[in-house]
C-alpha cells in the first residue's frame, strides 16, 4: 500500500485538493482516503496512475506500507464483513505459523478486560500503555452510577 499526501499530489498535478477528491469519487483515480490527509493506492494502481499522468513516483510517495491489501470498504457490499473467517482458513494454514500471543494497546478498563480474558483463556498478552501505569480514565473517576460504587 502506498500513502500519498493529498496536498503533494494536488501540487504535482496543478489542481485543487478537492479536485483530487472528486476524481477519487468519480473513479478517475483509483484510490481511497487514508487517515489524515493521505490517500491510499495499491501499488499497481499507483504505478498505473503515475504513468497516465506522467508523474515521478519518488516525489510523491509519502509512505509505503508493506501491509497486506486492506479490502477497500468503499467497494465492499455490507455483507462482506460478515464472513467470519474460520480459524483454520486456508491462508492461515498455508503460512504455517500462528502466534499464540496478542498485543493490547491501551491500559484502560477496556484494555485491561481484554488482556485478562485472553490471558485466562490461554494466550500470552502484551499490554501496552503510554503512561507510567495502567488504570486509564476510570481510575480517575470518583464513583460510578447507578450503584455509586467506588470506581477502583
Amino acid at each position: 500500500m502506498i500513502i500519498v499526501h493529498i496536498t503533494a499530489l494536488a501540487q504535482a498535478l496543478g489542481v485543487h485538493r478537492n479536485t483530487i477528491r472528486n476524481w477519487m469519487k468519480s473513479g478517475r483515480i483509483r484510490a481511497r482516503s487514508a487517515p489524515g490527509k493521505g490517500i491510499l493506492f495499491s501499488r499497481k494502481d499507483f504505478d498505473d496512475f503515475c504513468q497516465a499522468f506522467r508523474l515521478e513516483p519518488e516525489h510523491l510517495v509519502f509512505k509505503e506500507l508493506s501491509l497486506p491489501l486492506v479490502p477497500a470498504t468503499v467497494d465492499a457490499a455490507p455483507e462482506e464483513g460478515l464472513n467470519h473467517v474460520p480459524s483454520t482458513s486456508r491462508e492461515d494454514s498455508m503460512s504455517g505459523k500462528i502466534t499464540g500471543a496478542v498485543l493490547v494497546v491501551g491500559g484502560g478498563i477496556a484494555g485491561i478486560q481484554a488482556a485478562l480474558d485472553l490471558a485466562d483463556s490461554g494466550y500470552k498478552v502484551h499490554l501496552l500503555e503510554k503512561t507510567s501505569g495502567i488504570g486509564g480514565k476510570m481510575a480517575q473517576l470518583d464513583k460510578t452510577y447507578p450503584t455509586n460504587d467506588c470506581a477502583m
Partner: peptide
C-alpha cells in the same frame, strides 16, 4: 503477536 486489540480510549 497473532492479533492486535486497540483500546487507546
Amino acid at each position: 503477536v497473532g492479533s492486535i486489540i486497540l483500546a487507546p480510549g
